[in-house]
């Protein structure tokens, strides 16, 4: 029997060794740099969006990113939704009308498509009519849609922030592809997008510093909202559900205890 016990130990050791074999090449496959650690107001079980930050983030998106990046799933009306930037209805109407592009509508009575200023019910009009046009204007690269991008990347908001502030000179000896820029947070290190943000580029009227870092942070928060517009409602309901379940579990614990008191088990 003790021999079998030794055999057992041997097998356990084999398992441990094979696990150790695995641990070595963990970072071998040219993995990306982990994003910078950055704090956002929407983190944690009670986190909420910072309205001012979302409004500033929208401004950065509209004036800079929207030139190349579509946001097909978000409508102007969403900018006034509870739990979002919460622009007033009047502001939403102005933002829709003043978006850098007009909305393609139609066909009209003559069967022609026409352009008109945006309305709150419109979705953000895309910068390019199709993917081929987008690639043609961006030296072959396709600027991804931004609607859910913050959920489509690991550690989304921190990744977007890191990427935007992470442009730097390529390490000595590194050969960049034509039209590519070095960014160690981007998978592969070479990104087709030129550094998009510069200090003082977008005007903030609420006294927030107009720096690349602040723009990046505000935009990351805004993109988190577009990806997860029901985050505040989710956490609010979550807390109510948790309180209910914990209280119910407590009551059931004592009920069960009383019920089973006279049973040997």
């Amino acid at each position: 029997m003790s021999q079998i016990k030794i055999a057992t130990l041997g097998l356990a050791a084999a398992v441990a060794v094979s696990s150790a074999l695995v641990a070595a090449p963990a970072f071998a496959a040219g993995e990306v740099k982990p994003p910078k650690s950055v704090h956002f107001s929407f983190e944690g079980p009670f986190g909420t969006y910072d309205r001012g930050q979302l409004q500033r983030g929208y401004k950065v998106y509209e004036q800079v990113c929207a030139a190349c990046h579509s946001m097909d799933l978000v409508a102007f009306r969403n900018l006034g939704d509870p739990g979002g930037p919460e622009f007033s209805p009047a502001e939403v109407r102005v933002l829709a009308a003043e978006f850098p592009r007009e909305v393609v509508d139609g066909p009209d009575d003559l069967g022609d498509m026409f352009e008109r200023p945006g309305k709150p019910s419109d979705y953000f009009p895309p910068p390019f009519p199709n993917q081929a046009a987008a690639r043609a204007s961006n030296s072959g690269a396709y600027p991804p849609d931004f609607s859910v991008i913050a959920k489509a990347r690991p550690n989304g908001p921190a990744y977007i922030y890191s990427l935007l502030v992470g442009y730097e000179d390529p390490p000595a000896g590194m050969e960049l592809r034509d039209g590519a820029y070095y960014n160690s947070y981007f998978p592969g290190g070479q990104i087709a997008m030129a550094p998009p943000l510069f200090d003082e580029m977008v005007e903030y009227t609420d006294g927030t510093p107009m720096t690349v870092e602040q723009y990046s942070k505000d935009l990351s928060a805004f993109l988190m909202w577009t990806a997860e517009p029901k985050l505040e409602e989710r956490k609010r309901i979550g807390f109510q559900v948790m309180v209910f379940l914990v209280v119910l579990a407590g009551l059931l614990y004592f009920t069960k205890k009383k019920l089973w008191r006279d049973v040997d088990h």
Partner: peptide, 27 residues
């Protein structure tokens, strides 16, 4: 009532963990 109550308690405790993911770590 012995196992209906005991199962009910276990269900609720399991649901607490489930709800933590649904509401706080949904993805």
């Amino acid at each position: 009532p012995y196992y209906t109550v005991k199962d009910f308690l276990a269900v609720i405790v399991f649901l607490i963990v489930y709800a933590a993911f649904v509401f706080y770590l949904p993805n």
